[in-house]
Simulated assay, not measured.
Amino acid sequence: MRFPSRLLAANMVFALLLWGVLLAGVALVAAGVAVFGTLTESTWEKGVQLARWYALFVGVALVREYLPMYVAHGVTRRQFGAQAAVTATLFAPFLAVLVAVGYLLEAGAYGLAGLSQTLDRAHLFAEPTHVPLVLAEYLIELAAWLVAGSVIGAAFYRWDGGGLLAVPVGVGLVVLAESAIGTELRLPFVSRLALGLDVPQSPAVTAGLGLAAFLFGLALTWLVIRDVPLRNRPA
């Protein structure tokens, strides 16, 4: 198995393990709320928000961890850039599928228990069982978080503290994607700040803005890493 298939497979296996842990954790929380209180909303909708931060982490690691490793073993920066783009392009829909399957499993469990799987925030889909729309929404969202991570990770790898300048760029990519699907980016520790753009909602606009954010993020990452020197790490 060769790069990028090796890198993609490794991340898929790890994501699958984390998905199982998250699924079990969400199920325990839902069961606890149902037993000791009243369960009226989708628990998976809340828990799966962690997938965004995981996608961001994968994007950061894609450059900071894997770029020096592969270049040191004879892979050119151009080859790495192209193949990392393939990895990101295939990994984002894989995560979206895991999210959709989680919604379906929750729908089955709620149905057996006679519970309502009510959604708490705006989505492209009205029901969690509308699989194509679930996949579309989370593909756009997770792809944006992934490339935002790759831009930020590349900037920090190249410029150390100067990478802070790339954080607003990463946030902008995420805001663009969230606005495309009709939601707002709510930042942690800033409870009253919600970022979003007022864009017309239509399938063409949603798909176009999502694709634009993803491709722009990949292009920015390449501009940063195309001639980046490898850095020595302390032993």
Rank of each mutant, 00 (worst) to 15 (best):
V63A: 13
V58T: 08
A213Q: 08
L142P: 14
W145N: 15
S191R: 12
V97N: 09
L139H: 13
E184R: 14
V97M: 09
W19G: 12
Y70V: 02
L105R: 12
S5E: 14
G208L: 03
V175Y: 04
K46G: 06
L28F: 08
Y70K: 13
L104C: 03
V26G: 09
F36Y: 14
A107E: 10
A126F: 02
I225K: 02
I140S: 09
Q49V: 11
V63K: 06
Y70S: 05
V171T: 11
Y103E: 12
T221A: 05
S150N: 01
L185Y: 00
L173G: 02
R121E: 06
V29Y: 10
A148E: 04
W44D: 04
V228R: 03
S42N: 00
Y110R: 12
L23G: 00
Q117Y: 03
V131C: 05
Y157F: 05
S191W: 03
G108N: 12
T76E: 06
V175Q: 05
D227V: 06
A92T: 12
A84K: 03
V101M: 01
A109Y: 10
V26Y: 00
V205I: 06
L218A: 08
A107R: 11
P168F: 00
I140Y: 06
L16D: 11
P68W: 03
F80K: 00
E141F: 03
Y138V: 05
G196R: 11
A107H: 12
G196M: 04
W222F: 10
A15F: 05
W44K: 07
E65Q: 11
G59W: 01
G81P: 01
F14P: 04
F214S: 13
V134H: 04
V151Q: 02
H123W: 04
W44R: 08
L195T: 09
P4S: 10
S116K: 12
G163F: 00
H73E: 14
A113Y: 03
Y70G: 01
G47Q: 09
Q49N: 15
D227S: 12
R6A: 13
L185Q: 07
T89C: 11
L104Y: 06
A88I: 08
L211T: 13
M1S: 10
